[in-house]
């Protein structure tokens, strides 16, 4: 009777410890997933956005573009064309909110960088593409890349 009881206790102890071990491994996995999620790029980016908002700052985007037709235009002329296109498509209010400006333009390469508020990135890309419609094909601007910093945008503009 005592032996049977001892065996039963040993088996029960073994089963409990195995179950506990499995439970701990599972919990650890879940914990790792949660920790990874907390450290994820998306979450960090979101936190940066929240911090920026609290500080009253907006994130910017830099759109690299290439002039496929209409070389020889000055920086002021290109900026005016882009703003005109934006205004015609989305209106004066949107233009004011988007804060579109030409950050860099190289007339020899026909490449440049447009600075815009992150919320209006897509609007700016469409406005750049619509320049040829407004100029009836005389000037064709092709957006090539979008970056978050001017330094990277300048690098891509030099490669373009």
């Amino acid at each position: 009777m005592t032996t049977e009881y001892a065996v039963f206790l040993a088996v029960a102890a073994l089963a409990t410890s195995t179950a506990a071990l499995i439970y701990v491994v599972r919990l650890r996995r879940q914990l790792t997933t949660v920790l990874k999620a907390l450290d994820s790029k998306a979450l960090r980016r979101y936190l940066r956005v929240v911090e920026a908002r609290q500080r009253g700052r907006d994130r910017k985007r830099f759109i690299v573009f290439k002039l496929l037709a209409g070389r020889g235009l000055s920086k002021a002329e290109v900026e005016e064309l882009i703003k005109k296109s934006f205004k015609q498509l989305f209106g004066t209010t949107a233009l004011a909110i988007a804060g579109v400006s030409l950050a860099h333009y190289d007339p020899e390469r026909g490449a440049g960088v447009v600075r815009v508020r992150a919320t209006h990135k897509n609007h700016a890309i469409v406005a750049l593409a619509a320049v040829d419609v407004i100029t009836r094909g005389e000037v064709v601007i092709q957006p090539t890349r979008t970056t978050g910093t001017l330094r990277k945008a300048m690098r891509y503009a030099e490669e373009a």
Binding site: A69, N122, I125, V140, Q142
Partner: peptide, 18 residues
């Protein structure tokens, strides 16, 4: 109707998201 007017994938995407 001109090679320059072939729109990049990025433009098509932005256009629909707008």
């Amino acid at each position: 109707f001109r090679p320059q007017l072939i729109r990049p994938v990025e433009v098509k995407r932005a256009f629909l998201e707008v």
